[in-house]
Structure formats: structure tokens, C-alpha cells
């Protein structure tokens, strides 16, 4: 596979008796936007740090562009850009100085530095803030600056550890627009996030839970997995008034395997044996005469919930 950018084989990290990352294997193709999901403390950042050469894997190996991250750390440094959770900038320095510093750090100088600097400013629209100290930037602009700094050496892979944590929705959307732009230029992106809507935008997603990679693949392929769509069941969206009352009622029905509120509606996983009319009757009984029922495809959240439950049930048996 000549176009594989990131490859992990049984990547494992132990801290004392605690296994933070447990035999994780996956690969990311060049130009992919790989979304890496999982709850806090599941090992997302540890995987990123191993891939960036900051942590030594306890077991297994990983390569970036064919170079081993543990043994050829110096080779991968020019290939990767890394934006850590805290957007590590120097607060005392201005936007201009931060970019100048990172440029020089990567060995740029003179005309080359000037050219790359102008490119990055144009890309991130930072020009109105050049003389402002990084500490005085709002979250969205800090993040743009951090991104510009991590792109200064034109890396082939960009690792972003929760880039949208604590950012307003507008800035979040703009960031993703930027990420798509990088991706179209052939940069491979590895993004960790908590947001399911961000995961839906990725070309590939991986879900890590309790240090183990639960699933990995294209979002559409994951939604068609048999364990997400158990045979003899279907997913329904029920829109009605008094959703919470309705939810309590339908949960008691035999054949309703899962039910969650989704804004003004609820998402149900019901067995094929349960007719739609039985749902309507039950809702009418608790005082909800009107209900709009339609079949839906599973969301990524459904996928992760189903797979996590499956894994936990499997572990319990």
C-alpha cells in the first residue's frame, strides 16, 4: 500500500500496571481525514503522542510515511505537525512573533520564511491580529494561530488533539472548512474529538473505548455493520409532543430494544415483530394522540453506543 500514511500494529502503552493503549491497530491513507473518538481517558492523546514520537510505545509499532515513530523519530519530525490540546503558544509573544519563532525552529529563514509566513497568514486570516499578544486572542483565533504554527514546515500529516474543545460554533465550523481545504491539498489529518457531528464529517473514524480500539472504518460502512443493525430490527424516529412521557411509555413495550430522546423526537431500535400501530396505541394511551413515525439510518452515535454495549456485554459473559 504505497499511499498508507499512518500505520499502527498492536500499538500498546503501559504506565506501570495501567494499560493506556491496548494493542491498537489501524491505518490511515494519504489525504484521509481520520476522526479519532472516545471518552476522556480512553487513550486518544496517548496514541497521538506515540505517533508524534513523544512517547515510546511499550509494545507494537507505528510508522508514518514508512518511518518507524520510535526508531526514526528525527525522520518523522519534518513530516508531522502537531497541535496539542492546549494550543501551546507563547502567551508573551505576538501572533507575528509566534509564527516567526516556529518558522525558525523548523529551520526557515530569509525569503523562505517570509513566503511561508505570508501564505499562512493568508490561509488563516490572521493579518488583523499580527501585533496582538497570543494571550489576548479569543479561543478561535488562538486555535488558528496554533494551527498556522503547526503547519509552518508544510507537514504531510497534521495531528490535532481536540482542536475544537471550548471553541464557539462559528469558529468550529470555520476550522472544519480549513481542515477540508488542507485535506484537498493532500495533507493527511488525524483529529481527536468529542463531537459526533465532527465525526460525521471525517472520511474515516476510529472509536477507542477503555484503551481498546472498538471499531475503525468509513462512517457509512460502520452504520451498515450487522451489530449496529441486528437482524430483525429497524430504527425509527418518532416525533411527538411530550417526548419524555412518550419515551417512558414505549420503553415498557416488548420489542423496543433501545430508546433515546433526540431533541423533539426519540430514536428507537425496535424488533420487526413490533408493528408501528402498537407504538401509536401506546402513545395514545398516555395522552399523546399525534405521532410522526418514520424509519431512519443509524447515526455514528448509534454505532458507538451499539458497539460499546456489545463489547461490555461480551466482557460480562
Amino acid at each position: 500500500m504505497p499511499d498508507t500514511m499512518i500505520q499502527c500494529e498492536n500499538l500498546t502503552k503501559r504506565f506501570g500496571h495501567f494499560t493506556a493503549v491496548d494493542h491498537v491497530s489501524f491505518s490511515v491513507a494519504k489525504g484521509d481525514i481520520f476522526g479519532f473518538l472516545g471518552p476522556n481517558g480512553s487513550g486518544k492523546s496517548t496514541v497521538i503522542r506515540m505517533l508524534c514520537g513523544l512517547l515510546e510505545p511499550s509494545e507494537g509499532r507505528a510508522t508514518i510515511g514508512g518511518f518507524d515513530v520510535a526508531k526514526e523519530t528525527d525522520r518523522i519530525k519534518s513530516l508531522i505537525g502537531y497541535m496539542s490540546q492546549k494550543f501551546s503558544l507563547y502567551d508573551e509573544l505576538t501572533v507575528h512573533e509566534n509564527l516567526q519563532f516556529y518558522g525558525r525552529l523548523y529551520g526557515l529563514s530569509g525569503a523562505a520564511l517570509k513566503k511561508r509566513y505570508d501564505e499562512l497568514i493568508a490561509l488563516t486570516h490572521l493579518e488583523p491580529y499580527l501585533t496582538r499578544r497570543a494571550s489576548l486572542l479569543s479561543g478561535g483565533w488562538r486555535q488558528r494561530l496554533a494551527m498556522a504554527c503547526s503547519l509552518v514546515h508544510q507537514p504531510q500529516v497534521l495531528f490535532l488533539d481536540e482542536p475544537t474543545a471550548g471553541i464557539d460554533p462559528v469558529a468550529r465550523r470555520e476550522l472544519w472548512d480549513l481542515l477540508f481545504e488542507f485535506s484537498s491539498n493532500g495533507i493527511t489529518l488525524f483529529v481527536t474529538t468529542h463531537y459526533m457531528d465532527e465525526a460525521e464529517r471525517c472520511s474515516h473514524v476510529g472509536y477507542i473505548y477503555l484503551s481498546k480500539l472498538v471499531v475503525c472504518g468509513e462512517p457509512d460502512a460502520l452504520k451498515r455493520l450487522p451489530s449496529v443493525n441486528p437482524p430483525g430490527t429497524r430504527r425509527l424516529d418518532v416525533t411527538c409532543e411530550h417526548v419524555t412521557t412518550g419515551l417512558k411509555a414505549v420503553r415498557k413495550l416488548e420489542g423496543v430494544q433501545a430508546a433515546t430522546v433526540f431533541g423533539q423526537s426519540m430514536h428507537l431500535l425496535v424488533s420487526d415483530a413490533l408493528p408501528e400501530q402498537a407504538l401509536r396505541d401506546e402513545l395514545a394511551r398516555v395522552g399523546i394522540p399525534q405521532a410522526d413515525v418514520r424509519p431512519i439510518a443509524p447515526s455514528l452515535e448509534d454505532v458507538f453506543v451499539a458497539l460499546t454495549n456489545e463489547r461490555e456485554n461480551g466482557a460480562a459473559k
Binding site: 519530525k77 502537531y82 492546549k86 529551520g107
Partner: peptide
């Protein structure tokens, strides 16, 4: 403490 060290360590410094 601020996390900037990580940023330095991924660079060829």
C-alpha cells in the same frame, strides 16, 4: 507545565 515543551519536542530542535 504550559505544554509548549511538547510542541518543541515534536520539532527538529
Amino acid at each position: 507545565e504550559r505544554g509548549t515543551l511538547e510542541q518543541l519536542l515534536v520539532s527538529p530542535l
